[in-house]
Design a protein around this nucleic acid. Sequence first.
DNA 1: ACGCAATACTTCTTTATGGC
DNA 2: GCCATAAAGAAGTATTGCGT
Length: 499
Amino acid sequence: MKSTRRFCLTEDGLDWLSYYDELTLDDLYRRYPVSSHWQRILLERLDAVGTIYRVASSVAYCASPIQLRWYRALPLDAGITLHDGRTIGVIRQGATSDRTSFAKRVWRQEKTEVFVPSLLLFIVPDHMRFQQTRDLLTRLSQPAVVALEKEAVLSSADYKAWHHPRLSDPRNMDSLISTLEGLGRLPVEPPLSRPSLPKSLDANDTGFDAPDYLLPSVLKPAEKRVLDVLADWPCITSKDLTGLLGVSSARTAELTGSLISANLVTRVKMNGRNRLSLTDWGLSVLARRDRTSVGMARKRWSLFPRDPKAPFMWQNISGKRSRQLARNMEHTEAVHWFNAYLAKQARSLNYRIVQFDPPHRATRYFHHEGKLRSVHPDAFGILQKEKSRFMFFLEWENRAVRPVTMAARLAPYLRYYSSPWRPRDEHRGLPIVLIVFNDATVESRFLGVARDLMDQTRVDVPLWVSNSESVEREGPMGEVWRSPDTLEPTTIFGRQVHE
DNA sequence: ACGCAATACTTCTTTATGGC
DNA sequence: GCCATAAAGAAGTATTGCGT
């Protein structure tokens, strides 16, 4: 990640343009996205805009000249018209967008039957959503391909970043464009009813006191990374944040310090420790970037008190999901601690952290015997070392003490792993299930229960169990894991290897 | 106008230090 | 132990100047 210098027309530039093209100001509004409103929207979405410019430039490399058009409120983010009239639509899924709202956006695009471009490009933030979107596209009637954002921005025209839902090999932009058929059509948004000249941007506006819509250009890449991590793991301690980021604690303090002074991040005290979370303001900055609902983000994650006069405690947190996290603070904290520890240890052993998903993204839905079922792990993660990949669900268990509760905990996983293709298909590989107990004796008892259940149901769950004491001593990558088959603690790494 | 190398400048990071 | 800040170095990018 790096920050990039970007260019904008000044008022004089626009003036000159209208003079040069012999256009009236009205014509100008109709042809170019020039108004203070448009300008604001593009600046708020600057990170998405940057990605799409890169993709557009790789298109231009194969088929220049091109025309690029941004959309304000349509499902498409942008539309590209090639010199011969063929059309490409671009949709980017942001890191904070959830599955349902994105599926809805895709569905809305499919409904606009008149405006079907020759090709749709989908850009997604991580591997899980890559799989989900790919599945979604097999049901889509329009020709479409999908790429990871990281790979899409590599943008050289011969990098094979684009995956067709039905073809296994990725393709590069060049071959995509050469096989495009039909002109297709891009939608047109109604012009703004009250256009106005964009404001000139003040080149000195580089501090946090700059206007809101300039924040995406003021924030440094490292600061944005902190915002993204905090969006995933609210109420995290500065120490665990340091572990997840993989930087020194001094660096974390510096980054969070500046974000706090910008009022994007707040420090709250819960369970006797200082914790960091996004403010309502920080939530809305990310929501605007990703074109998701600001109101929804606040309803879920806001820390704003329901009753401003009452003291700060979990009952008084207005965001529903934040409230749940705060209510089970000890559990939440344990999961943060495990992930931070794992991240740290993985890095020291030269593993790359591909992704760590918080509970709301670790959830998997599936059909089992005609019913919609789900597993709700506390985290999902992918680590990688060279070509070998390692995937896991994490369950932190401090309550399941009785055999009945233990069986109830395991039941969803027995269902999930009962059809052999399901997890494989969803992850392109088989994730394992890690369960950590607070108490070593409970751990041993659980292994017995699990063995019996797996024998009864004849379902083989790739289960590895440990206890918090051992993990604390040796670390998550140490020899601390036991399965119903191997009672001697072992390390799980190097075991779950996949292409 | 283009390509290349040198230089200037950013950004990120770590270590050290001191206050609470 | 936690947090803030300073200093200083590493890595990378942008800009300039030069030759063709």
